[in-house]
Design a protein around this nucleic acid. Structure first.
Lengths: 230, 230
DNA sequence: TATATTTATTGATAAATATCAATGCAGCAG
DNA sequence: CTGCTGCATTGATATTTATCAATAAATATA
């Protein structure tokens, strides 16, 4: 039996690290309240403003977490990979999803009812700490983003996005972003044309290479400097 | 004995609402680990990036919570009043303060060691829920800000700031902002000159009146519309 | 394979926003 | 009162960024 075939929270090796602190009984509660679903690329997994009834955990694949603005102007907040809990602050505020989530490639996901998460939060101290740690991590990230978006100019934001993809998302100096230029621009909070132009500048200066379908980072330090200095 | 003279967590009527769920014993733990301090207007209460050793609770007065960027470019994230917990996500991530806090007017504040907060988080379920609720509230706010900052144009952001001050902070249609134009601009994420100009436009259009030292909102609906439509 | 359709790129232009410089205005120290 | 000093305002200008339009490239579809 391969890893992919394990479909039981008790033995699951792919889920959220914080599930490791649960007892067998608790894992069984999880198992009983789990709903699994597969998505093809581009499907909506969670919809902003809809009732926050479930937390989502990716078993495989990637998803974009984004804020939907007026007139189809989106802001991609982060790229989710397996191993994290996807749930917004809405579950403790207005009971609505604070953002939308949609699949970038093929995704297998588990949905777990919020009440179950809250129940475990109440009865297992370590689990509660894991939840708050994850929420803090997200919160921290939002503040960072707020900083970049308001203080950095476009080249700084583009550099930041490239470093994020290279570092956190793909863990490689060369990667296929899997995202359209529009989506990359949505990550950097700018128009797609602007993103393209800056990408070309970076390319002309030899900081990156984007001739290939991939993006390859040639001078990481320089890119880091551009990102840091706004 | 007046309210102001009560200096004991057990009887405190001013503190964080979430402290109400603590037992007498727990309140005494709080009391034993409490440090009180007074600030005059303009003093730094918490400094961004410094070790996050304490959470802060205002007993009276107001403070600005802001992110410090490079080159003295700040972004004021919110205005704190008594009744909320002031602590950033840093306490569960990098153990540093995620933002700076400084007093707007005279402030009386209590400092409580993070370890105490974390201890209570671990042993009192209701308290833990209160903590996560507060953190979620902040997180939600950051996402809203992220949205405004990236999607709204300047008039929308100015309108938003005015409505925030009028609604959440001062609870009045006419108010003295207590903040300089520079600080108001830092709330809206723009240059002070831009803020002033838009304020004047609103004034010319009769949406507000800012002749007096106060700012008076004349047409709330219109302001709301400008804020909503970006 | 050929054709349609989306996505990417590029250039020209317009709009939004910041910066700079000058002036006005208030509170405050002498 | 007089002159500082910091904040507020205003105008002129430069910079940044978005939008529009055209074309090219890639991808999907028939």
């Amino acid at each position: 039996m391969t890893k992919e075939n394990i479909c039981n929270c008790v033995d699951c090796e792919e889920g959220w690290l914080n599930f490791k602190v649960l007892s067998r009984d608790e894992l069984e509660i999880l198992e009983e309240n789990r709903y699994e679903a597969d998505f093809r690329a581009g499907e909506t997994i969670l919809k902003q403003s809809s009732p926050a009834s479930n937390a989502v955990f990716l078993r495989s694949g990637m998803a974009k977490i984004y804020l939907e603005g007026q007139g189809s102007k989106n802001l991609i907040v982060s790229i989710a990979k397996p191993g994290i809990m996807i749930v917004g602050p809405g579950i403790y505020t207005d009971n609505r999803h604070s953002f939308s989530v949609s699949s970038i490639n093929s995704v297998k996901a588990c949905f777990i009812r919020i009440e179950v998460i809250k129940k475990l939060f109440g009865q297992n101290r370590k689990f509660a700490e894991g939840v708050i740690r994850e929420m803090s991590r997200m919160s921290h990230w939002y503040l960072d983003k707020l900083m970049s978006m308001t203080q950095k100019k476009m080249p700084g934001r583009v550099a930041e996005v490239l470093l994020y993809l290279s570092g956190e998302v793909y863990g490689a100096g060369e990667f296929n972003p899997l995202l359209t230029r529009q989506e990359l621009a949505d990550m950097a909070g700018m128009a797609k044309e602007s993103f393209v132009r800056i990408l070309k500048e970076f390319s002309d200066e030899g900081i990156i290479c984007s001739d290939c379908p991939d993006i390859k980072i040639m001078q990481k330090e320089k890119l880091q400097m551009i990102s840091d200095n706004g």
